[in-house]
Simulated assay, not measured.
Amino acid sequence: MANLRAGLIGLGMMGRHHARVLASLDGVDLVAVADAGGDPHRVAGGRPIHATVEELIAEKLDYCMVAVPTALHEEIGVALAEAGVHTMIEKPLAQDTPSAERLAKAFSDAGLVGAVGHIERYNPALQQARARLEAGELGDVYQVATRRQGPFPSRIADVGVVKDLGTHDIDLTAWVTQQRFVSVSARTAYKSGREHEDLVAVVGQLSGGTVTNHLVNWLSPLKERVTVITGEKGAFVADTLTADLTYYANGLEQHTWSEIANFRGVSEGDVIRYAIAKPEPLRVEHENFRDAVLGQQADIVTMEQGLTTVRVAEACIESAQSGSTVEVPARGHDAGLVVR
């Protein structure tokens, strides 16, 4: 069987990593790349470098990776859908809900595989957490709290921290718990002099009753990517920078000190850091998309799921602007969404 012919549009900071993975992916030939600004990181490797998506489409692609600025996602994505090219678009799916809806519809109507590059789903720590939650190792899930902070990335100019970084936490929280967001209450801050927010704090409620908390900013010299999942049997702490998953079990020992025993809470138990395989998340993401294009069983973030994430992100922004809690209604396929 011939290798799939893949293209890549967008050769910036993320594009260079996509190029590296696509160039070495089994069953795939990266045949050409495109970027209106050329190839600043020199990742083309002798392949044709085009300026437009139309020139890239002319290479007779089976599928394409889109890593351009968010504001260009709809225009480029629709062009690929109309050309019959299966496509994965970097997160977020689009800059707003109407654009995301049009993209999801374009690929659905064309019968094409459309996916969104929410890479955190493929982090080994979160993959392990998801599997262990499904196996019941934590029991009922009470709370998911995430912290995602670090220095300001000057390359991001068209969206704020909610749609750029916060969408990671929205997607991974819904996926790891298998629950959708039903309401959010958020506060934002504008400290860097830009038109978009650079700090957000969100409290959310999920469909299964789980409470969520998300702290995201571009204002910290400390880089953090932590997810804490608390349940009836203990807590999982996933550090996606190191891909480590640690389990903090509830203690089983009875307290003999009466003042402590009167408090009917949990106590400290065993702590286990799991030894897990740590494949590169970006490679796993591309392997799954390749398999989906081939019609094989695969775990991708669909455009419908990406659309739902954009809706929740916009609800967070609306909440911050209005100072009120915003409901996130189930719409159509979202009502029964299972984000596996």
Rank of each mutant, 00 (worst) to 15 (best):
L4A: 14
G7D: 00
L8G: 13
I9L: 10
L11N: 07
H18F: 15
R20I: 03
L22R: 03
G27A: 13
A32L: 07
D35H: 12
A36R: 09
G37H: 06
D39F: 15
H41K: 00
V43G: 08
P48A: 08
L61F: 13
D62W: 09
Y63W: 15
M65N: 10
V68A: 11
H73I: 07
G84V: 08
H86T: 12
M88I: 10
E90F: 15
P98V: 06
L103N: 04
A106D: 04
A106P: 03
S108T: 09
D109C: 07
V113G: 04
A115D: 01
G117F: 11
H118F: 14
H118P: 01
R121W: 12
R121S: 07
Q127C: 06
R130T: 07
R132Q: 08
A135V: 10
G136Q: 05
G136C: 12
G139S: 09
G139E: 03
Q143T: 10
R148Q: 04
P151W: 15
R155P: 00
G160T: 06
G160R: 02
G160P: 01
V161R: 02
G166Q: 06
G166F: 13
D171H: 09
L172N: 06
T173V: 11
A174I: 08
A174P: 01
A174N: 04
S183P: 01
S183A: 13
S185E: 04
S185V: 10
R187Q: 02
S192M: 08
H196Y: 11
E197H: 13
D198R: 12
V202R: 03
V203D: 00
G204H: 08
Q205I: 13
S207Y: 10
G208E: 05
G209N: 09
T212W: 05
N213S: 15
N217L: 05
W218A: 06
L222K: 08
R225D: 03
T227V: 13
K233E: 02
F236S: 03
V237D: 00
A238Q: 05
D239Q: 12
A243R: 08
L245V: 07
Y248L: 07
W257I: 08
W257P: 00
S258G: 06
E259N: 09
F263Y: 11
G265R: 05
V266D: 00
E268D: 04
V271I: 14
I272R: 13
Y274F: 15
Y274H: 13
I276G: 03
A277V: 10
E280I: 14
E280W: 15
R290L: 08
R290E: 02
V293P: 04
T302M: 03
Q305F: 12
Q305Y: 10
G306C: 05
V310E: 00
V310M: 01
I317M: 00
E318C: 05
Q321Y: 04
S322L: 13
G323E: 02
S324W: 11
S324F: 14
V326A: 02
V328I: 14
P329C: 14
R331F: 11
R331Q: 04
H333S: 14
A335S: 12
G336V: 07
R340G: 10
R340L: 11
